[in-house]
Structure formats: structure tokens, C-alpha cells
Amino acid sequence: MNVEVRGLSKAFGPISAVTDLSFEAGAGSVTGFLGPNGAGKTTTMRMTLGLVTPTSGTATFGGRRYADLPRPSATVGAVLDGAGFHPAHTALDHLRVYARMGRYGRARAEEVADLTGVSAFAGRPTRTLSTGMRQRLSLATALLGDPQVLLLDEPSNGLDPEGIAWLRHFVRELAADGRTVLISSHALGEIEHMADHVVVIRDGRLVTTGPITGLYGPATVLVRSPQAGLFAAGLTAGGVRVEHPQPGLLRIHGLSTAEVAAAAASHGIALHEITPERPTLEQAFLHLTGGSR
């Protein structure tokens, strides 16, 4: 089930939080929703769920607005910042209450607790839970209806390294099962490992959308060779852009490692090292959004 955002805009008085935003998150994939602080990510997520009314435009799930879904929580599960828990309820109490509200049955609460690791602290009052535990409990709540779409706003907040590794694997499994997963996150390193596609916004406007590999730009390859100067001359004569950052080292633009190796063989050049090089997601993100370190 696809998430489709078309011409979505939201103004708070004179301030435009989101402007004419359009993108799509497809089934069976993880889409990273990226942007600087204040870019409009959370506002957009809330508009898709009807928690904020758009000034114009639409957000639909399989062609229907969230409010028009016959059983919304069985179609869309959401984890947003600031999820509230009754302080006197245990984690399992919380899940049982929401399971009953959604008519999912008492057993479903225990199933999602086991799926998300909540069962390890199921008997603890929610007021005593750490931020990471609350994130797991929020995710378990979102999964009660076994939804086809997951909207996750900063889901790794408060998770320790083990929890982040678990989340990465869990999210990939959800997508492999054919679900649509849209993740808003500042943890670019994690998005780099989780996402298939990205949507990048700045100041409420779309910057780019597409496969995550498309952010990185043309390939570059680092080569170390005792014949670096000779190799550089041959490549340059063939129209390839080559940098020579230090003696014996070349940075070759626009060729894959296989093409570089083939070119070296054709010129009779000995290579001591050949390494593909690409920018990190953080570097690509900062370039696209005009940020700086």
C-alpha cells in the first residue's frame, strides 16, 4: 500500500511550514524522510494522519485519506514524538488497553510485546521506563493492528547500540514482508543502513526524492600505484578526470572499480590498492540542504 503526498501545504499564520510537497513511499521498501530541524518533517507526518489540517493538498494511503479508512489502526501504525502513557499503567496494561480499543484481543498485546522486546519490562509502570523502552512500547502499540503502513518519527531516539541494531533489522523485515515504512530521522547513519529510498526536504519544500544510491553522485575510485603518474596521463588522455592528491595516489572520477582495473591492465599498470569511494549520507545530505559541519 503506497503513501502518496500530493501538493501538501501548511501555513501557521504568516509562517509556511510545508509548501507544495509531493512524494510517494512504496510498498515493500523503507523510505527515509530527511531534512534539517524545522524543515517540516513532523508537520508533514501529522498531516498524513489528520492530526494537523493541511492548508491545501492531500495525503492518502492506497488512495484514501486516513480519516476515510474503515479501520485506520489496522492499515496505518504510527510512532510520533511525545507518545503519552498513563503513568500508573504497566507496559502490558498500556498494550492491553489499546488492543481492546482497537478490538484486537488480549493475546495480540502479548504478541507485539514479544515482537518488540517489551515483554522484558512488561510489568514495569510506564513512568519508570527509559526513553528507549518507551520507543519500543510506542512501536509495539503501532503494530497492534498488524498494519500495512508504518510511519515512524525518530524511532531510534533513546535506543542503545544494541537497540538500534535490532531496530534496523526489524524495520528491514517489515519491508521485506511487503509493508510500507516511512521513517523521519536525524540519525543519518542509520537511515543509510535501513532505507531504500529517501525524501529530502528543506524549509518545507522538496529538495530531492529517489533511490538512496542516487544521492551519492558519480563514483570515484582511489588507486595506489608505483606508476601513478603514467596511469593518470593515460586516463586523462582518454577524457577521464583524475586527481593526484599525493605521490603514488590517484582519485579517479566516473569509473567503477572494475573499469579502473581493466584500464590499468590495458596500460600495463601495476596497482597496489584500489578502493571504491563515495560520500557518506551525511555529506550528501549537507550538500543537498546547504548545511555545513
Rank of each mutant, 00 (worst) to 15 (best):
L8K: 03
F12G: 11
I15N: 15
T19L: 11
F23R: 01
E24Q: 14
A25M: 03
S29G: 15
G32E: 01
G35M: 05
K41F: 03
T43V: 08
T43N: 09
R46C: 10
M47F: 11
P54D: 06
T55C: 08
G57T: 08
T58C: 11
G63P: 09
R65K: 14
A67N: 13
L69W: 15
A74I: 08
G77V: 03
G77M: 03
V79H: 08
F85E: 03
P87I: 10
A88Y: 15
T90K: 06
L95K: 02
R96F: 09
M101R: 15
R108T: 04
E110Q: 13
E110W: 15
D114S: 14
L115A: 11
S119V: 13
S119R: 14
F121V: 11
A122L: 09
G123T: 12
R124S: 05
P125L: 02
L129P: 05
M133H: 12
R134H: 10
Q135P: 09
L137P: 02
S138D: 06
S138A: 14
A142I: 04
A142N: 04
P147T: 07
Q148T: 14
Q148N: 15
L150S: 05
L150E: 02
L151A: 07
D153P: 12
D160T: 14
G163Q: 07
F170D: 00
F170T: 05
V171T: 06
A176W: 14
D177N: 14
G178T: 05
T180F: 12
I183Y: 01
I183D: 00
I183A: 06
G189L: 11
I191L: 06
H193S: 13
D196A: 12
V198H: 02
V198I: 06
R202G: 06
G204K: 04
L206G: 00
L206S: 02
V207L: 03
P211E: 01
I212V: 08
T213V: 13
Y216R: 00
A219S: 12
A219F: 13
R224V: 02
P226V: 01
F231A: 00
F231M: 01
A232V: 00
A232P: 02
T236W: 12
R241F: 13
H244C: 12
H244P: 02
G248M: 01
L249E: 01
I252C: 07
A258Y: 14
A263F: 01
A265W: 07
A265G: 10
I269K: 03
I269P: 00
I269W: 03
L271V: 00
L271F: 08
H272S: 08
E273H: 13
P279T: 07
E282C: 11
F285N: 01
F285P: 00
L288E: 00
G291Q: 15
S292A: 15
R293T: 12
